[in-house]
Each structure stands twice: as structure tokens, then as C-alpha cells.
């Protein structure tokens, strides 16, 4: 729905670009637009973000409005998705939860992505001792038990939402760094990198222009897998006391509460679960679409 008005002005731009020769990103956008599933995923994600953004104005109830008399009720005309045991409206709580979950998912993943890609690319590209030192640091962080790390953070810094991003970012970038490093070590020996050297390009230019674009495939796939896992990790951290506290909600928290009362009030699990699944599907379709779009070797249909 959203994509149709968007695509009109782009078409004119494409004509112009073709004359001048285009870039990887531009070609990727043209290709992505033709991929229905990916666009579907993109639209769903945009809608979810939009809803979360507007929640304070469009939510039917307040997120902490309780109705203890009502208690847990099944979906009805007043409460479309039912209410929880305190009589709070589920739709409202899912909408508010989306604000937290999407922010955490996107920001923490972005942090992990940026650190991981740069770290891995640098280590893999320079190699030798630098690589050894950088990767041993990764190993040390890997080895650190996550729980102890979190507890330490809380002891030192107290409860803070930014600590949440930091904690998640600190864990998730490790795997990204390893994936990217492996890719880069492989790419480094390719002749086109050597050709770039013989042109006299600086190392940073080579990394930026020749190395990183060629690692995008696995990076994108891993990113789309990271976002949902980060959202669930947030629930675990909130449970430990780091992150958000009731009566605030997040999808992860709603799901973990829903699990407890799964037998009596299944809607408390089903609706947040469905929302998370929808996000996950949308992300995967978009991720696959992006991966194909950013690889010029997949045919141009």
C-alpha cells in the first residue's frame, strides 16, 4: 500500500541515474522494489514502527490503567485483544511494548552491527598480531558468563535503560565480528583487493569500498536473526531487573508473563507471540530480499 505512491518519483530518478552509471545501493533499491515479499516485509515493519511512534495518541487505554474488577478477560468489543490479570488492555500494552521492543531491537542491533563489522573487518584485514590481539579480546568477552556481566553492570551503574543497549550490544557484536572476520580473511587474498593496493588506495578506503560491501550477504542475514533474539534477550534482562520495569511493558515481557498463565488465559501469550512472529517474518523476508538485492550476481529478473 505504502510502496505505490513511493515508487512514482523513484521511476523518474532511475532514468536519470542510468545515464550517469549507478551505484550498488541504487541498483539494490531497484531490485528490492521488484521483490514482493521483501516489500511486504518492509511495509509491515514500517507500519509497526509507525504504530509504536503514535501509540501515546492512538492507544485506546493508558498502559497502566487497571481494572481489577474485570481481571483477565477474553477478547471482546471493548478490549479487542482481551485484558491481563490486572484488567489492563492487551492491545494497549502490546502497542506500548512495541515501543520498547523495537527501539531495543533496532538500536542494540545497530550498535552490534557497527562495532562487529568494523572490528571484524579491521582484524581480518590487517591480520597477524593485530588480528590475534583483537580476536583474543573477543574470546575473553565470549567467555565471560553473561549473567555475571549483567549483575556487575548493575552493581556499578545501577538501573538504566541505556545500560540495556550497552549490555546487549556488548554481547551481540562478538558473533558478528567473527563472521565478518572470516569473510574478510577470505576476501583479503582476492586479486581485486591486491589490485586496489597496487592502485595505491589506503587501507581504510580498501576496507570501506572493496571489503565491507562484499561481506554484506552474511551480515544482513545474521542481522535479521539478531533483531528478534535481542528482543527476547531484553525480556530476560528485564526479568533480572536491568531494563524496563512494570507497569511498563515490552513484547518479551508480555510473552514471558503470558507463558505463566498460558493454560488459563491463552490470549495473553498468543497475541504478543503473534506480534513478535509477524515482526520476525517481516524481518526475514526483508533480509533475504536485501541480501539478493545487494548481490549483483543474482539475476536482474
Amino acid at each position: 500500500m505504502n510502496s505505490i505512491p513511493e515508487s512514482r518519483p523513484q521511476a523518474g530518478q532511475e532514468q536519470e541515474q542510468e545515464e550517469r552509471g549507478s551505484s550498488l545501493w541504487h541498483d539494490a533499491w531497484i531490485k528490492l522494489r521488484k521483490n514482493r515479499l521483501a516489500i511486504c516485509g518492509l511495509v509491515i515493519l514500517l507500519l509497526l514502527c509507525l504504530v509504536s511512534l503514535l501509540t501515546p495518541w492512538i492507544a485506546p487505554y493508558g498502559y497502566e490503567e487497571q481494572n481489577l474488577l474485570l481481571g483477565a478477560s477474553a477478547p471482546s468489543a471493548q478490549h479487542w485483544l482481551g485484558t491481563d490479570i490486572f484488567g489492563r488492555d492487551m492491545l494497549t500494552r502490546i502497542m506500548y511494548g512495541g515501543r520498547v521492543s523495537l527501539t531495543v531491537g533496532l538500536i542494540a542491533t545497530a550498535v552490534a552491527l557497527i562495532i562487529g563489522v568494523l572490528w571484524g573487518a579491521t582484524a581480518g584485514f590487517i591480520g597477524g598480531r593485530v588480528d590475534a590481539v583483537m580476536m583474543r579480546l573477543v574470546d575473553i568477552l565470549y567467555a565471560l558468563p553473561f549473567m555475571i556481566f549483567i549483575v556487575l553492570l548493575m552493581v556499578v551503574f545501577g538501573r538504566n535503560i541505556f545500560l540495556l543497549f550497552f549490555a546487549i550490544g556488548a554481547v551481540e557484536w562478538l558473533t558478528m565480528a567473527r563472521i565478518v572476520r572470516g569473510q574478510v580473511m577470505n576476501l583479503r587474498k582476492q586479486e581485486f583487493v591486491e589490485a586496489a593496493y597496487s592502485l595505491g588506495l589506503s587501507q581504510w578506503t580498501i576496507i570501506r569500498r572493496h571489503i565491507i560491501p562484499n561481506t554484506l550477504g552474511p551480515v544482513i542475514v545474521y542481522t535479521t536473526l539478531t533483531i528478534p533474539s535481542v528482543m527476547l534477550l531484553e525480556a530476560f534482562l528485564s526479568f533480572l531487573g536491568l531494563g524496563i520495569q512494570p507497569p511498563q511493558s515490552s513484547w518479551g515481557l508480555l510473552i514471558s508473563y503470558g507463558v505463566e498463565t498460558m493454560e488459563e488465559f491463552p490470549w495473553l501469550l498468543i497475541f504478543p507471540g503473534l506480534t513478535l512472529s509477524l515482526t520476525l517474518f517481516a524481518l526475514n523476508f526483508l533480509g533475504d530480499g536485501l541480501r539478493d538485492a545487494l548481490d549483483p550476481r543474482t539475476s536482474k529478473d
Binding site: 582476492q190 581485486f192 591486491e194 569500498r209 572493496h210 560491501p213 562484499n214
Partner: peptide
């Protein structure tokens, strides 16, 4: 096949 960056026109 190897000496050209596959992602550059």
C-alpha cells in the same frame, strides 16, 4: 573473475 570487485560496476 577474481581481480574485479563483484559489487562495483
Amino acid at each position: 573473475y577474481a581481480s574485479l570487485n563483484p559489487r562495483m560496476t
